[in-house]
C-alpha cells in the first residue's frame, strides 16, 4: 500500500502541529488533540511518535532512545518506523540530533537551542491520583487549585517519613501549571529548568500534548522543610566507564552475584569512553 511521508496524512500533521504551537504558547498546559492510531501500539509511545512524525522534515537528524539506550527494542522499533517512512538521517549522538524522541530519560548531554526533545507520556494528568475525573482536574488546573497535589506529597511524608513519588515526579511550570514531566527519573527533572532546547510531551492514548519551551522555569514540587530529592548515586561509579554523577542502571554480576552500576545513557558513556581513548592515545 502506498505510504505518506512520515506515515500520517498532511491534514493530521497540520492539526498536531497547531495543537503543539498552542502547547508551546501555554507552558505546562495540556492541550487535547485528536490522537491518530499508528502502526505502533497505543501506550507504546504513540503520543511522542505523532509529535515526531508531524515535525520531522527531510533535513532532520533523528535520535530515538528508550530507558537511556538507542538500542532498546522499543527505541529500535520506533526509529525504524520513522526511518522507513521518511528516510531521514539517524544518530546516537545527542548533540548531532535535531529531533530526539525519548522514553523515560532526558539525555545527560544538555539540549542546545533549536534541538527538540520529544518525550512519550503515559499519563499526562499529574492530578489523576488525587482526582479521577477529567472534567474536575481540568477545573482544578483552571483555578490553579493544587492543594491536592501537595497534600498527596504531605500524606506520603506522614506515612513514610519522606516523599515516595519516584519517577514522573510532578513539576510546576512557569509558576502556573503543575505538569507531569513523563516518567523520567527525578534525576532528570532539574534538566528541564531553563533548558535551552524545546521539550514537547505527547500522550497518544490520553490525547494530550504539553510543552516546556526553551528558557522556562520548571520547579519540582516540594516543601521548605522537605526539599526535592533526586535518586542517590553519589557513591556509585560506573563499572564500564568510571563515570559518576550520572543516572545508573543497577546490574548483577552473574558469576560473583555482586551488584554493580553502569551509566544508563549509553551514547553518553560511549562518547566519554572514546574521548578518554583519544586522550590516552595522544599521551
Amino acid at each position: 500500500m502506498s505510504q505518506n511521508f512520515a506515515f500520517l496524512d498532511e491534514h493530521s500533521k497540520k492539526e498536531i502541529r497547531r495543537k503543539t504551537l498552542k502547547a508551546i504558547a501555554i507552558p505546562g498546559y495540556q492541550v487535547p488533540f485528536a490522537s491518530r492510531e499508528l502502526p505502533i501500539a497505543r501506550g507504546w509511545g504513540t503520543g511522542g511518535l505523532q509529535l515526531t512524525l508531524s515535525l520531522v522534515g527531510k533535513e532532520d537528524t533523528l535520535k530515538v532512545i528508550d530507558q537511556g539506550s538507542d538500542e532498546s527494542v522499543n527505541a529500535v522499533n520506533i526509529r525504524n518506523l520513522v526511518q522507513n517512512t521518511t528516510g531521514v538521517a539517524e544518530t546516537i549522538h545527542t548533540d548531532e540530533a535535531t529531533l530526539i524522541q525519548s522514553r523515560h530519560r532526558i539525555p545527560e548531554v544538555p539540549l542546545k537551542p533549536f534541538q527538540i526533545l520529544v518525550l512519550q507520556v503515559p499519563q499526562p494528568e499529574p492530578l489523576r491520583a488525587v482526582e479521577v475525573s477529567e472534567r474536575k482536574t481540568k477545573m482544578l488546573h483552571g483555578d490553579k487549585e493544587y492543594s491536592g497535589a501537595f497534600i498527596k506529597l504531605f500524606e506520603q511524608i506522614m506515612k513514610f517519613g519522606h516523599i515516595t513519588d519516584d519517577a514522573d515526579y510532578p513539576v510546576m511550570v512557569n509558576d502556573r501549571y503543575v505538569m507531569a514531566p513523563s516518567p523520567i527519573p527525578r534525576f532528570d527533572n532539574p534538566k528541564m529548568n531553563y533548558n535551552e532546547g524545546l521539550i514537547l510531551l505527547g500522550a497518544g492514548r490520553e490525547k494530550k500534548i504539553h510543552a516546556v519551551p526553551p528558557y522556562t522555569k520548571v520547579e519540582s514540587l516540594a516543601f521548605e522543610d522537605y526539599p526535592f530529592e533526586v535518586e542517590q548515586f553519589d557513591d556509585k561509579v560506573c563499572r564500564e566507564s568510571g563515570l559518576s554523577g550520572v543516572y545508573m542502571d543497577e546490574l548483577q554480576d552473574e558469576k560473583t552475584g555482586e551488584t554493580y552500576y553502569v551509566t544508563n545513557d549509553t551514547s553518553y558513556m560511549l562518547e566519554k569512553l572514546n574521548e578518554e581513548a583519544v586522550q590516552h592515545a595522544g599521551k
Binding site: Q67, S72, H104, R105, D166, D168, R186, E250, N264
Partner: peptide, 14 residues
Amino acid sequence: KLPHYVTFQSKLDR
C-alpha cells in the same frame, strides 16, 4: 511488558 528499568530504579531508590 516494555522495559521500565529506569522508573523501577527510581522506585527502588525510594
